[in-house]
Amino acid sequence: MGTVTLGVSIAVPEPHGSRLQELRAGFGDAAAHGIPTHVTLLPPTEVAAERLPEIAAHLAGIAATSEPFAMRLEGTGTFRPLSPVVFVKLVEGASGCDRLQELVRDETGPVPRELQFPYHPHVTVAHGISEEGMDRAFEELSGYEADWICRSFALYEQGADGVWRKLCDYEFGSGRTVSAVPAQCGSPVESPAATPAV
């Protein structure tokens, strides 16, 4: 069956998701419209396609034992010079994200994954673009604020075209697969895709 590249993340809801995605594109990040605005729980990970049902069941189990929590974005940060990234800071909800990502990557689960850097939840708004573009992102979003209650996370698959498409959402408290996060306007990342069996 080959392999697929998966990622797990918390989507930034509307209207914030589309707004940040458009700003990211405006800063010169050509990949912006292929990436939903998100907080990463599992970075891009290549797995055997036949393991999708097992991974889906794993994620459903995590969601079933999780509870909604508050998330708040405020201001900007950067990983430069270590990594060419500018991000909006997560100032509330980091502990909830950290718990989830540890469970997703658990060494006894189907997607054990070592991280290149220590986990630091954030929302990327510029990656691998010119220094001028990253400076602009850092400055223009320095006063940015948004907050919401996180009630689910999502499983995504990266297509051959580089675009990340959502396979399904996992609702906290039940583990049910739902469509709780609206599509980001003008984005292909919410195109219909086959939902993995659980």
Rank of each mutant, 00 (worst) to 15 (best):
I10S: 00
E171M: 14
E114L: 09
V91A: 12
A31D: 07
F138K: 05
K89P: 10
V86R: 01
V104Y: 00
G77I: 04
D161W: 13
M1E: 15
C150N: 06
A137C: 07
P68L: 10
L167Y: 10
P196S: 14
E54C: 14
E145W: 05
T45E: 12
R51Y: 14
L100G: 02
S179W: 10
G143N: 09
E22A: 01
F138L: 11
A57Y: 06
A160G: 11
P118A: 14
H122T: 01
I10K: 02
L100E: 02
E46Y: 11
P44I: 02
H120E: 04
E54L: 15
S152P: 03
G26V: 04
T177H: 11
L42C: 07
P68V: 03
E74P: 05
F87C: 04
L73H: 04
L6Y: 13
F87D: 01
E46T: 15
Q158T: 10
V178R: 15
L82M: 09
S191F: 12
A57I: 11
I62L: 10
E50A: 15
A126P: 00
P81W: 10
P121G: 12
D98G: 03
S66F: 03
E102T: 03
S83C: 13
A31V: 04
L100W: 03
S18Y: 05
V163F: 02
T76Y: 07
C97I: 01
L167N: 10
A57V: 13
G109V: 03
P43V: 05
P192S: 13
E102I: 03
L20Y: 09
F87P: 00
Q21C: 11
W164F: 15
R99P: 00
A49F: 15
S18D: 02
E14V: 04
E67F: 13
P182I: 07
C97F: 02
L20I: 09
S142Y: 07
S95F: 03
R136A: 13
F153G: 00
R113S: 03
E114P: 02
A32S: 06
P81I: 09
R113F: 13
V163S: 08
C185Y: 04
R72Q: 06
R19F: 13
G133C: 11
V198F: 05
H58F: 13
S174I: 13
G75W: 06
P182Q: 08
G162K: 10
M134T: 02
E50T: 15
L103M: 12
V85C: 09
A30T: 09
Q116M: 10
A56I: 13
L90S: 00
G26E: 02
G96A: 11
P118M: 13
D29A: 07
L155R: 01
E54I: 12
A64I: 06
A180Q: 08
L20P: 05
D106V: 09
V178M: 14
R105S: 07
G93D: 10
R24P: 00
V4I: 15
L115A: 04
E14M: 06
F153Q: 04
P196L: 14
E171W: 08
G128S: 07
T76V: 10
S152D: 05
P68E: 12
S83R: 11
V198G: 06
R151G: 09
